[in-house]
């Protein structure tokens, strides 16, 4: 078996190498009982996301790439991945597109691409203060002064510690 047919949410069919199962746990499981020429329906993956996923898979030659650095060391994703292509790929997307892609990769059980997307989101948090984050994400809820004080007294080490991480 060399090729499989994936069907997006919209019903569009795409042919791809069965090696895609190296990257996707979902496809790997499906292929255990796969009948030739059978379509694999991906009810939660849009055509656009499927195209992006396949672009990622083809670039990495259907092999699991090196995971992003953990913890990330800079707000720039390019500094945290070993393949610059990964950074370019994820930088093309806006936040909503990233979240959509995360949902699709979650459906396909594709850890490597999901980690890349989530690492990109993590980069957005790095070096930002509380107020900026609240503003960016439209968070209006406030902690009580008491809780805020407790947080400060519970974790002074995090504020003072040398960056040995």
């Amino acid at each position: 078996m060399s090729e499989i047919t994936l069907v997006s949410k919209e019903g569009t069919k795409i042919q791809i190498s069965s090696q895609f199962s190296n990257l996707s746990g979902f496809i790997h499981n499906i292929l255990q009982d796969y009948q030739q020429n059978e379509d694999i329906s991906l009810a939660s993956v849009s055509f656009i996301n499927l195209q992006m996923i396949l672009e990622y898979a083809v670039h990495h030659n259907f092999q699991v790439p090196q995971p992003p650095r953990c913890p990330i060391t800079s707000p720039n994703i390019a500094d945290n991945v070993s393949d610059p292509w990964d950074a370019e790929f994820v930088n093309r997307l806006n936040e909503d597109q990233i979240i959509d892609l995360v949902t699709a990769t979650n459906f396909l059980d594709m850890k490597s691409l999901m980690d890349l997307c989530l690492a990109k989101i993590a980069c957005m948090f790095k070096y930002k203060d509380i107020e900026t984050l609240r503003k960016e994400y439209g968070i209006t809820e406030e902690f009580t002064a008491e809780i805020e004080e407790k947080l400060k007294s519970d974790f002074p080490w995090a504020m003072e510690a040398e960056s040995n991480d």
Binding site: P68, C70, P71, I72, L118, A119, A122, F125, K126, Y127, K128, D129, I130, L133, R134, Y137, I139, E141, F143, E148, L151, F155, A158, M159, A161, S163, D165
Partner: peptide, 14 residues
Amino acid sequence: FLDAKTIITFSQVC
């Protein structure tokens, strides 16, 4: 993916 210091900041957002 975050270091401890960023996590503490992160935890104070909401």
